[in-house]
Every structure is written in structure tokens, then in C-alpha cells.
Design a protein around this nucleic acid. Structure first.
Lengths: 252, 252
DNA sequence: TGAATAGTGTCTTTCAGACAGTATTGG
DNA sequence: CCAATACTGTCTGAAAGACACTATTCA
């Protein structure tokens, strides 16, 4: 059952087995990795897109797409390494919050043939969002669950899934902490939650929840402003995402 | 950036582009789909495994593995169709609860070369669990997050992720409803929750939660037994999984 | 009648929602 | 002083935990 009797017809590449054994002589789908990279910029949730080239045979020339590309079987040890490589190439960020989102594969999503992409999503702080941006990369604010330009492939669908997943998880996790700079105040963190959820949250419930979670710790500094200064916090070392037992604003 | 400069070294298949265009002449990973199929049998959570063959070149001969195999670019329109095909081949079940679990891909997980698998998990009712079982398929009760036999590839890791995901989601969703027969009582549903979570639940809180969710409806029959009969329910038509605002047993 | 399981009611606890009130800065 | 924002306290309400209580069957 595990051995496959592949036929040779159909579009796409045709694989030729190495010396390793029999039964691999059938067409293989293309394998790619794409990343949905989020950051808070200009008081809005934004996503990083790249403009595609126009070389011969390139589908969707000039269109915007999620950063990503083919898995390189020589350079990439595994899928996550591939995602990190592509993230670093576009942003310079090396250790963001990175989560696998899902995979999309079909005969039709890429005109070059059957292809499957492994999608990830990353959260990076605004401070890192501009530092080492690739020339072809550009930030776009989210409009609902999408973005203004028409995206290549099925990337609009992937982006929509990423936004949904993010918004959903933000209801009961500490993920927005990964969108913050190294030091931040509680009102700033609350504002990040509110931007992602597109909804105001109760101040006191928010503070109680965050402070009772084993997530952040105060530093010996305050954020100065034209009014009362606010306590600065930072993520505790090795702070894994926290899952809360309830969502925000649970009652309708 | 989207065009890839592939080298030709390394193990695995080498792809040859069709007539479609340039830039696809590099090795492609193997692409597979695997399914973690759960059912409640003998008052326990069980998972379906298949024994691998021993043809020449087959890795992990005779070992147990998750049902799955290569994507067939001619027969499978997309990944989910591929998963449904394999599920139907092994169990005869055609419309179970099916959810994408994630993907695992690396240079080393398959001795035949760089490979990536798209993992799904399915919940099927016990009644369907034996009806049309494939000859090489067998049910195994879960022991913790794993199973007694040593599994092929990285399937132990995938199974562990599936169990974790299932247990986690059962805390705040109605997923166990998909493990039930068409008609079931509330105590039976509660027992299913308890089996999956491996923890007793409060009867009255459980009933309140289930009955106030827009999930099940009573039928005009009762489950007879040696004691007080219980109301039978069925899933409402087109009942999507329900997400509850709180987990069970929230306070430590 | 008693065993067994189905189902309800009642009290407590927890924690978010609402919102008022206090604290601390700059101007 | 006032404006503005940080932060705290207090009351309420919703839903779960604990558990006692009633209901309905068969033997």
C-alpha cells in the first residue's frame, strides 16, 4: 500500500529516483514555504509583501505575494529552517515568534503544476520591521482580513487564514507580546491587543490578566510622557506564549 | 527572488521542467499526506495504524505507520482530497470530521530523500470504525500521547501532536460530538469527553454547557437500559464545531 | 423496595464587565 | 490649578465547581 504506482502523465516535473531504490519514479509536486509576517506599524496591523519579478516563466509577474519560495533541499534542513531563512532574507529578523499556519496544495494553485506550500506566520516588533528590509518588500496595512493589492497564487486565502488565526488566538493568548519592543508599558500592550482585535478592551480586567500571568516582569524604568509615567515591563526570559482560560469579552 | 537557482546535488529525485517555462530544474522533495484517525473503541481513545509492506526499497518494512502516502498529482485535486481518498481507502468513511494538523518536512525524515508530509486528523464514530477496515489496518489504544508499537518515520511525533491538539481542543470545543454515533445521550457524550481528556467532568456544568450550545437536538426516543432511560440527541444539521468561551475545569 | 443511572437545584467561587475614583506627571 | 493618562477599587453578573437532591427505570 505504501508503494505507489505512479503514472508519468500530467503536468509538472517528473522525478527520477536516485540510487536509493525503486518506486519513486512518478511526478512530484512543487514544494514551497510562504510566511505571513505581521507587525504593528502606524497604529495598525500590517503584513509584509514582496513584489514578484517578471523573468520568463514566472507566474503572476509584478503582483504582490507573501514572502516565500521553493524549499532548497540542499540548504534547508527542514521546513522551519526554510521559513526562518526566508524571513531573515526579507527582514533581517532571526528569532521572531514563528508558528506553522497550515499547508495549501492543489493542482491548480500554481500554473507551473501541482504545488503545495507550507505556510507560517511570524510576529515581529515594529522596531525590527524596518531595520533590514529587502528592496522588493513592502508593508501593507490590513483592511479587514485582507489587503488592498491583489495577491498572487492563493495568497489572499492564506493571508485571510493567518489573520483569522491571529485574531482568534489573541482572544486567549499572550501572542501580542511578541509584537512589542523589548520594553513596553501595559497600556501599550493593551493598545496592541486592541489593534489586532479591532475592539476596545477593559483596562482593569486586562491589567489583572496580564499581571497574574507568568509572562512579564517590571524593569526599573518608567515611560516618560506629558502625563503620568507608566511602568515599563519586559517579557520574562523564556516566556512561552500564555494561554488564558477565558477569552476577552466572553459574554455577548 | 522568486526564481530559484537550484543546484543539482543531493539525494532524492531530480525534477525536469515540462514545456511550461524555465527555472524549475532543481530537485523536488517527496510530498505525502498522512492521517491520524481517532475513534472511541472499548471505552478508550484509539488510533488507526497500518503495517508497512516489505517491497524492495521500502523504508521501515513491517513497521506500523499512520495511514497515508504520496500525493498522486493525477488523482488528487488538492491535499484534502488526497486525505479523504486515503481515509476512505482504509476505513470506508467518507465524511468524517477532518482537520489539517500541520506539516512535517526535513531532509532526514525519510531515507529516500527530502520529504514533506501534510498531516490531517480525523474523528470517526465507533460504528464506522470497523465496517470496512482495510486488511493492513489495525486499531491501537492510546497510551498517554503515544502508542505501543514503534512507528515508522516521524509518525510518533505526528501522533503526539495530534493527541495534544485533540486534547487541547476538546477543552473548549464540541469536537467529541464527531466521535459519537448518530444518536447519543448526554451521559454518553460526557463519557467521550472524559475518555479523551482522561479526567472526570462535572455532570451539571457539562449538561448546561452542551444544552445551551446550538449543537444538539433531542430526538423522540430514549436510550433504554437497566435503569432510568436517557434522552437521545443528535447533532443539529450542519452543526459546525462549537467553541466555548471557557475551558472545562478552568481553576487549578 | 433497592440499585443504578438520569437529570435538577442550590450554594459557592472565580473572574470579566462596568465604571468610579485616586495618583502622578507636564504645562 | 488643569489636562491627561496611569493605575486601583468596588460592585455586579455569568458561568463553572461542588454536591445534594429528585426522577425513572428494571429486577
Amino acid at each position: 500500500m505504501a508503494g505507489r504506482q505512479g503514472t508519468d502523465s500530467g503536468a509538472g516535473g517528473k522525478a527520477r529516483s536516485g540510487a536509493k531504490g525503486a518506486g519513486l519514479d512518478f511526478p512530484r509536486p512543487l514544494t514551497t514555504v510562504d510566511i505571513v509576517i505581521f507587525a504593528i506599524r502606524s497604529d495598525a496591523l500590517q503584513v509584509l509583501l514582496v513584489r514578484r519579478g517578471q523573468a520568463a516563466g514566472e507566474p503572476f509577474p509584478e503582483a504582490f505575494a507573501l514572502p516565500g519560495g521553493f524549499v532548497d533541499v540542499d540548504r534547508d534542513a527542514d521546513l522551519e529552517a526554510c521559513a526562518r531563512r526566508k524571513l531573515a532574507e526579507k527582514t533581517g529578523v532571526v528569532s521572531p515568534y514563528l508558528e506553522q499556519l497550515g499547508s495549501w496544495g492543489s493542482a491548480t494553485r500554481d500554473p507551473r503544476g501541482w504545488s503545495a506550500t507550507h505556510a507560517y506566520f511570524a510576529l515581529i516588533p515594529a522596531s525590527a520591521a524596518e531595520a533590514a528590509l529587502a528592496a522588493d518588500a513592502q508593508w501593507f496595512p490590513l483592511d479587514g482580513a485582507g489587503v488592498t493589492p491583489k495577491l498572487a497564487f492563493d495568497h489572499a486565502e492564506i493571508l485571510q487564514a493567518a489573520v483569522r488565526r491571529l485574531r482568534n488566538k489573541v482572544e486567549y493568548t499572550s501572542l501580542p507580546a511578541y509584537l512589542m519592543a523589548e520594553e513596553f508599558t501595559l497600556p501599550e500592550l493593551q493598545r496592541t491587543y486592541e489593534i489586532v482585535l479591532d475592539r476596545p478592551l477593559e483596562k482593569s480586567a486586562f491589567r489583572t490578566r496580564m499581571l497574574s500571568a507568568d509572562l512579564i516582569e517590571p524593569v526599573a524604568r518608567m515611560r516618560k510622557g506629558p502625563n503620568r509615567p507608566a511602568q515599563l515591563y519586559r517579557l520574562k526570559k523564556a516566556a512561552a506564549p500564555v494561554f488564558f482560560a477565558r477569552t476577552f469579552n466572553a459574554p455577548e
